[in-house]
Every structure is written in structure tokens, then in C-alpha cells.
Write a protein that binds this DNA or RNA. Structure first.
Lengths: 144, 144
DNA sequence: TAATATACTACCAAATTAGTAGGAATATTA
DNA sequence: TAATATTCCTACTAATTTGGTAGTATATTA
């Protein structure tokens, strides 16, 4: 049960934007360089973050990407969801209809518990929280 | 972040054995039929469960598989681990060495929290717990 | 208009996951 | 001991997902 690089890269990228906050749009290329991610691949991830309304883009010269909202108003759960898709580990957790026996299924209870536990953790942290914690530790932050 | 069918099938299969408890070895073919899993594929999963010491096999006519221990002594965490591999969502959670900045990484804290939350849920349930809950609900049980 | 960025669409390659095939080994039954 | 039932083992294949590339269109600035 591994997290895709898609999500890992995406989180790193948006945290980079969060750190850059206020300094105007940050170019994709710069994010890619600092995070050591293929620029072309990151382009796709940015598109996802954009269509999810988490970042805004500025086209043309001096363009780039900025957070669509302050970093303390973006929860990790949002970032996670739009990149990784649902947290769902098993389909029936969200959609009981997909299995006739779902209603009384014990295993499903476990998957549901796991689901909730993950959501809870993701819901609890904003981008700013992460940056603060990282700074408090004197770290280069957000690296995954 | 989806659970592999490998894990889902494996859990269903071992729960089938748990339900069958005491009635002697249950044939792979029977498990496959009842759970609607390809027998040939299940064969591989059983091999995994066997090498993990969770089930025992009996060869030859009237052979089959049985739980290696009572169903109330097998935790879902064990089943999960041997099938899905580690719960780890991101490498650095287990192996801080894999990333120079891991020590002070805020994102890593989140991944670690998720990791722990999942383990906790898996650790809390034994196979028998699941069967009991399912029976209490009057369900066909364990179906995923 | 030239230079600099993102936007969009399509494609490709590697890795992983899911599933198949066939026969060898072993135990039971008769 | 012969026939049969069953697990065991190895290899192969197919489908899906993931990660990454290429090229062109479009918008902005200077």
C-alpha cells in the first residue's frame, strides 16, 4: 500500500509554492529544479492541482503558479484527494451498492476504520502547519 | 490508494478457513468456488499465507488448508502484512536513511501518523472478531 | 514581434498486478 | 500397487497503472 510518486511529488510541489508565498508566481521549472522532479511530469500534476482549485496559474512571461488560497487554509486532505483520488482502500467503503453483502460485512468495517483513520490525519494538517513544524525542526522542510 | 485484490482475496480466503474451523482441511477449490476467486490465483495467495505460517496445508486426497492457529489468535495485521507487504505508504517512514532530510521532514510526520493509524486498526482485530461481528449482523460475513 | 511561460493532447516505456498453464510431488483410497 | 485427489512449483502472459516524454497551441510581457 504505497503512496504514488504522483501524490508525493504533488505534495512537495504545493509545499514549495506555500513556502514561496507572497513572492509572486513561481515558475514550474523552478519548482521542478528545487524538488528534483521532471518538469514535464510536474506539469501534469500542476494541472491537477489547478483544476482542483488549489493553485492558480499565470501564463506568459513572468508567469508561474501560486496557491489559490493562503497556506493555512489548505488542508493536506484536499491535496491528497485530488492527486491520489479517494483514500478508499476498498470500493465498498464508499459505495455499499457495489456488493450485495456489504451491509453486514465485517471486513468492510475494518476497511472503513482504516479509511477514517487516514482521513482524520490528513484533515488535521494544513500546508502552513507542515511548514511551521519543519521550520521548528530547523529542517529543509517538506521533503519526502 | 487502493488495496490490492491480492490482499482482499487473501483476507477473504483465510476468513473462509476460519469459518470452516474444526471441520478439517478445506480444499483450495472449495474456497475458490465459495469466494469466486480463480483457483489458480488463489493457489499463489495460499502459498504466501502458508509460508507466513498462518495456514497449514494437507496434501493428497482429502487434503486442503487449515488455519495454523485458532482464529482468535490471528490478527488481521499479520494477514495484511504477509499479503500486502508493509503498510508503509512512503519509504522514509520505515527507513529514515533513504532521505538525508528525513529527520526534520514535516511531511514525513504525516505519513508516519497515517502508518500508525492503519497499523492500530489492523492490530485490533482478530479473524474471530470479524466473524463474530459479521454473525451478529446476520450477514454472510467477511465478503469484501 | 520576440521571448517566455503555461495549456493541451497524445504518445511511450517500465513496473506492477492479476491471472493462466502444465506438470511434478505427495497422500489417500481401494 | 494402481488410480485418484490434492497441493506444490515454475514459468509465462495479459491487463493495468505509473511515470515520463514530445510537440504544438496560446497567452503575457517587454
Amino acid at each position: 500500500m504505497k503512496l504514488s510518486t504522483r501524490t508525493r511529488y504533488g505534495v512537495r510541489a504545493i509545499l514549495e509554492l506555500a513556502e514561496n508565498g507572497g513572492k509572486g508566481p513561481m515558475q514550474l521549472k523552478a519548482v521542478a529544479r528545487r524538488q528534483d522532479i521532471s518538469a514535464k511530469y510536474l506539469e501534469q500534476l500542476m494541472a491537477v492541482l489547478k483544476s482542483a482549485g488549489l493553485v492558480r496559474s499565470v501564463r506568459g512571461a513572468k508567469g508561474g503558479y501560486v496557491l489559490a488560497r493562503p497556506s493555512n487554509e489548505i488542508r493536506l486532505s484536499e491535496v491528497f484527494h485530488c492527486l491520489e483520488g479517494t483514500v478508499t482502500t476498498v470500493e465498498c467503503v464508499q459505495d455499499a451498492e457495489c456488493c450485495q453483502r456489504a451491509a453486514g460485512c465485517a471486513a468492510r468495517l475494518v476497511w472503513a476504520q482504516i479509511h477514517e483513520a487516514i482521513e482524520k490525519v490528513l484533515e488535521a494538517a494544513t500546508l502552513q502547519d507542515l511548514i511551521d513544524k519543519a521550520r521548528a525542526r530547523g529542517a529543509v522542510s517538506y521533503h519526502i
